[in-house]
Amino acid sequence: MPVVLLRRLAKSYLEAGHRHWIFQGIDLQVNLGEFVVLLGRSGSGKSTLLNLISGIDVPDEGEVVVCDQRLNQLSERGRTLFRRRRIGFVFQQFNLIPTLTVLENVLLPLELNGQLDASSRKRSLALMVRLGLGKRLDAFPDRLSGGEQQRVAIGRALAHDPDLILADEPTGNLDLETGRDVLQLLDQLVREKGRTLIMATHSQEVVGWADRILAIRRGRFEPMLP
């Protein structure tokens, strides 16, 4: 069952008066429970693709369908509300809210979706324990190490149980060992919940975890063996 469907997708940017095409006419299908890695060098369009899938950005041409919803048919507000409910994000820079504690950061998506109650709170606490942050719940992000911050970000991405998790270079700011721990956790949790994960990275380290690897070169996908 496809969770993400891209049809004849095209995206370009205007740079110094010249149109620079990131993608032109690409197609992709990502199925439920799949862990797909987008591999490519900096500037290859990995982040742009994640932005298009999440509805943060809109394509010049083509269609983006996520969880049976055609994002092109939604307004900006509609895409935002869709993202809020159905997608979880993990960033390279963590992007935690500095004025919220660890637990509050994780609870934020639940609250935004109106799902914050005793049971969801309990589930989130269990998730944080699982992520090894059970004793840092009241800490603020600036007091955490990079690995801890990324684990909070994973907790935040999964707390509201989204169908699709998008991760943009989640280990890019971490050392090798910490990065490996984070990946393991992310992989475990996503697979346990049967969710779909699309991860953009330039790190070959990640490929061992993926079900499918797509290398982006010159605006096209080139499948690689895991």
């Binding site: 999440s54 507000r77 935002t80 809020r84 409910r85 992007n95 935690l96 809210i97 935004l112 935040r156």
Partner: peptide
């Protein structure tokens, strides 16, 4: 701005 940017990703609408 950065905070608003994060919140926009997390699904807070412009309104």
């Amino acid at each position: 701005l950065r905070l608003f940017g994060i919140l926009r990703v997390l699904g807070l609408t412009r309104q």
